[in-house]
Simulated assay, not measured.
Amino acid sequence: MSRQLLLDVLPAPAPTLGNYIAGPNGAALAAARSLKTGQALYLWGPAGCGRSHLLRGLADQPGGAYLQADQDARDFLALAQADPQAELPTLVAVDDVHRMDEARQSALFALYNRWRESAATGRAFALAVAGDRAPLSMPLREDLRTRLGWGLVFRLDPLSDADKLAALSAQAAERGLQLAPEVLNWMLTHHERDIRKLSALLDALDRYSLAQRRAITLPLLRAMLADPETQTP
């Protein structure tokens, strides 16, 4: 097996509702899972709380569409102003609304209006939006701030270290790996603390262990990270 792992570009697992580690955010995950056409959901919280993961997980489902705050405003307007007979997504996810400029805010405002007008019709779609703060605290135009609170609103909290350790332990167990507590603790305290990047590190460690035909230990983890063949040029 090749030892060329290219750690720096190793993709993290694609975000889905299934691999979202809820921690203290179980109610928000449940709301996302049960979101139906005609309903709206707003998620807010600090960086690293998992709001983008939830939105991407929602949009990954059949009929989903994912839009970022820095996309062309015409992408939003294409949905908001689409012909009534046009086939539209059944769910639209809009991320990082706190970064929207005036043109994109106007386009999102129009999309909210389209969502409300169609909510009780056969053309209804679900709308899931996320930002870094509560609706009324958003640095957005007043009429858009009001619309952010039209549906369910959930604050997301970052995972605690205990949640991350539990998540890594569960992922290791699914792979049939026996990881000593010192390995997990080292990963958490010496690597990036984003859970998806930690999951990618665990995947790399599994591959490296197989390539080296050695059990996973702290010295093996350190050797992998120091090995020039596991780094990008």
Rank of each mutant, 00 (worst) to 15 (best):
S2E: 11
V9M: 08
A12K: 08
A12W: 06
Y20C: 13
A22T: 10
A28K: 07
A31N: 03
L35Y: 11
P46G: 11
R51M: 08
G57I: 11
Q61V: 06
P62M: 12
G63D: 00
L67K: 08
Q68D: 12
Q68C: 12
Q71E: 14
R74P: 05
R74L: 08
A78L: 09
A78C: 09
L88H: 00
L88S: 02
L91S: 05
A93L: 04
D96S: 13
R99A: 15
A103Y: 10
L108C: 00
R116M: 14
A120E: 13
R123D: 09
R123H: 14
A126P: 10
G131I: 03
D132R: 13
R133C: 14
A134P: 08
M138N: 06
L140D: 02
E142G: 02
T146E: 04
W150C: 07
L156C: 05
P158T: 10
A162D: 14
A162S: 15
L165Q: 14
N185Q: 13
M187D: 08
T189K: 09
D194L: 09
S199C: 10
A200T: 08
A200P: 05
D203P: 00
S209Q: 03
L210R: 14
A215E: 13
R222W: 03
A223I: 02
P228I: 06
E229F: 11
